[in-house]
């Protein structure tokens, strides 16, 4: 069997992608593909350039970013607080755990129409959907994490003379931070899913709204361009989250 040099894996992957795009483009030019369903890479590229050329993409990007980052921040905050409280107060855990389990079990995007009814078609309903997606994830991360905190570390701090406050500061909070950061990439993905689905259901701006517009006008090139744009944006944020995780969890 041929042995592949792992150092050049990325080059082989890029070459394979380029070959696929070239075949796709050639098939389009030879009229083998219907551009209504499968527009060529050059048509998708042109649609993408168009979006930026006249500047109309920026308000949509701003709307989606605003909803996703707002939902992400709120979701992390509320998820951490509820997770910590539920882990430390059994009565609160009794009340919260069943609700969170149900919310975790269902595809939470089905709540999008409800949020539109409650909060309107503006930013709030998108933030709410991102928030609910992220908060449930973070709640379980923190709730189960605190319950599984290493007892040896707790005993170490206690035997060194640490009080309850010292335990929270030196054991529980760093543990919580590491679990949350470990799930940050998933949370970012959830936040953008919430924002885009919310915009797709009912909105006047945002990448999800543009996707909905492209679908209703059968504009596959615009749809591909938007999917590509969302992919790039999320990958960029994944990269930032990864760097943040690497820096803050450098002890690991």
């Amino acid at each position: 069997m041929m042995r592949l040099d792992p150092r050049y894996t990325w080059m082989r992957q890029v070459a394979a992608l380029a070959a696929l795009l070239a075949v796709w483009e050639a098939a389009d030019r030879a009229n083998l593909l219907n551009p209504i369903y499968a527009p060529s890479p050059s048509r998708v590229g042109a649609a993408l350039v168009d979006l930026f050329a006249d500047g109309r993409i920026w308000p949509h990007l701003e709307a989606t970013f605003g909803a996703a980052l707002g939902g992400l921040a709120l979701g992390i905050l509320v998820g951490v607080v509820l997770g910590v409280v539920a882990a430390l107060v059994p009565f609160i855990a009794e009340l919260l755990e069943p609700v969170m389990t149900v919310l975790n079990a269902i595809p939470r995007v089905i709540l999008a129409p409800l949020f539109v009814i409650w909060l309107g078609i503006g930013l709030a309903s998108k933030v709410a959907l991102s928030f609910i997606l992220v908060a449930v994830l973070i709640f379980f991360t923190v709730f189960t994490g605190i319950r599984q905190v290493d007892r040896r570390l707790v005993e170490r701090v206690v035997t060194l003379g640490g009080n309850r406050r010292a335990l929270v500061r030196h054991v529980y909070l760093p543990s919580v931070a590491s679990w949350v950061l470990g799930n940050l990439k998933i949370a970012v993905g959830f936040a953008f899913t919430g924002a885009c689905v919310g915009e797709f259901v009912a909105a006047t701006e945002g990448l999800g709204y543009l996707l909905s517009f492209a679908q209703s006008t059968y504009n596959a090139a615009l749809m591909f361009a938007l999917i590509l744009l969302i992919l790039v944006v999320v990958l960029l944020i994944f990269g930032l989250a990864g760097r943040l995780e690497k820096h803050l969890l450098r002890w690991n």
Binding site: D150, R152, L153, E155, R156, V157, T159, L160, G161, G162, N163, A166, H170, V171, P174, S178, W251, N252
Partner: peptide
């Protein structure tokens, strides 16, 4: 007390781990 496991806080440096009890 010294346990079988060293039980050092993984997010603190060696210096910070040693200083922990003193600050407490």
């Amino acid at each position: 007390i010294l346990f079988q496991d060293d039980a050092l806080l993984p997010w603190k440096t060696a210096r910070e781990n040693v200083a922990l009890g003193l600050t407490f």
